[in-house]
Amino acid sequence: MSRSSDTWCIIGAGMGGKGLVAELGTAGIRLHVHDIDEMQIAGMREAGGLHVEGRDANFAPTALATTDLAAAVQGTSVILISTYGNAHPAVARMLAPLLVDGQTIVLIQGHFAGSLAFRAALDAAGCRANVNVGDMDAYPYMLTVKAPDRVLMTSTKEAWSLAAYPASSSTAIMDRIGSAFPGMRAAPNLLHTAFNDLGGLFHVAGMITNVAMVETPGAYNFYANNMVPSVCRLIEKLDQERVAAAQAYSVVVPNVRDWLVETYALQHPTLEQSLQEMAVTHYRYAPAPKSLSHRYLVQDVACDLVPMAELSRAAGISTPAMDAAIGMANALTGRDFIAEGRNMQSLGLEGKSVEEIVADISA
């Protein structure tokens, strides 16, 4: 693993970014941390890093915590982006003039075809640096932010995947960062990581069916309160459409129950039982959404359900459950997630056949 002579940059210092700081910083990687929000990095700057509970090492130092993106990126070899998927194009535009040859960029997580969307935004912004761009199909850690300078790390996923665009650069990225993420494995191409991203199905189903819980005062556990039998039936309908679409693109993915076994070692007779156990083990302390502007809805509809439904249509696969979920999200928020999300045009796939899409993404 890279040590203090090598510097990595983490862009986005919310819960996800702080989890990366905790894990990588305690492992000895020299870190720069950036966020556009001063409040997200002030605690780390004052403390010189993060206090970490739940790990053998109790402090993760940061060499720099700043709102200055140019300063954060300068002199770094690896750039880990932990922002909302909706923000990926904007981050790419800001990074475009700052990147240099040889840097590795990884979206954690990428959501559906994140590397494709990110590289398209870099190209549109005139980036000429020779960089590798990849994304993970899941965020690896479960944690709680206890204070601006303190996190509690609880557990780590059993397994997750990384792919790149173009696919031929995946090996280089795995060689570069793989030792820092022991549970990560290489996927053949972005379609595999895209169709393996199930978090959005859980999140969107739980949000659109429990709006009153979201919009009334009081804390709650997202999975314990929301994952009742009827919501689990909706998740399984969404999952059936995901699996069918993946098959149309020659991608074999586990169904939701098998995915829970592979990712969290959760195996019960029903989906509800597995998700209820997940609520009290892996996500016991996770804060639940209290607004429909939360990433569980706006990000996961725009960056997961929309592209999944769009690629399904291109393959002639019907997605009534996904279409209903997207329509409900539109109605609840007054937004048009198909227009603003990762549609075929924004991904550069408009008008392409299934065979052309597979050939492009597999290159």
Rank of each mutant, 00 (worst) to 15 (best):
V252H: 14
A279R: 03
I357Q: 12
D258S: 07
S353D: 10
T144P: 00
A22Y: 05
V211A: 04
M1N: 14
Y264N: 07
Y264P: 03
A288V: 08
T209L: 02
G199I: 08
Q103Y: 07
N58K: 10
Y223W: 06
A167N: 08
G12Y: 07
G218R: 14
R55D: 03
Q40D: 05
V251W: 09
H51P: 02
T83C: 12
Y223L: 14
V73T: 15
A314V: 10
T67N: 13
A324Y: 06
A172S: 10
D123V: 15
S179E: 11
L275C: 12
A92W: 10
C9Y: 02
R242K: 07
V151E: 00
P61M: 06
G49C: 12
G43K: 07
Q247T: 14
A13R: 08
T62Y: 02
L122E: 12
R233G: 00
L50E: 06
T319A: 00
V204W: 09
M44Q: 12
E272D: 12
A186Y: 00
A194N: 06
F59V: 04
R284K: 13
A138W: 05
P182A: 10
I338T: 08
A265Y: 06
L266V: 13
A172G: 10
K352G: 02
M44F: 09
L152C: 01
M142Q: 08
L80A: 14
A302T: 02
F181M: 09
L266T: 04
R150T: 03
S4R: 15
Y223V: 01
L347I: 05
L266Q: 14
G85K: 00
S312F: 01
Q74L: 12
N189H: 12
A65P: 13
V261D: 13
L116I: 09
A321G: 07
T7E: 04
T144G: 04
P97Y: 09
V261E: 11
G178S: 02
I11N: 01
A167C: 11
A219G: 15
L305N: 01
Y139R: 01
D336G: 01
P269Q: 03
Q299P: 02
Y264W: 15
Y141T: 04
I173R: 00
V228T: 09
V228Y: 01
L275D: 12
Y141A: 04
T156Q: 14
D323Y: 00
S318T: 13
T270D: 05
S155C: 01
G126F: 07
P61E: 09
R257D: 13
V301W: 00
E38C: 03
V211Y: 01
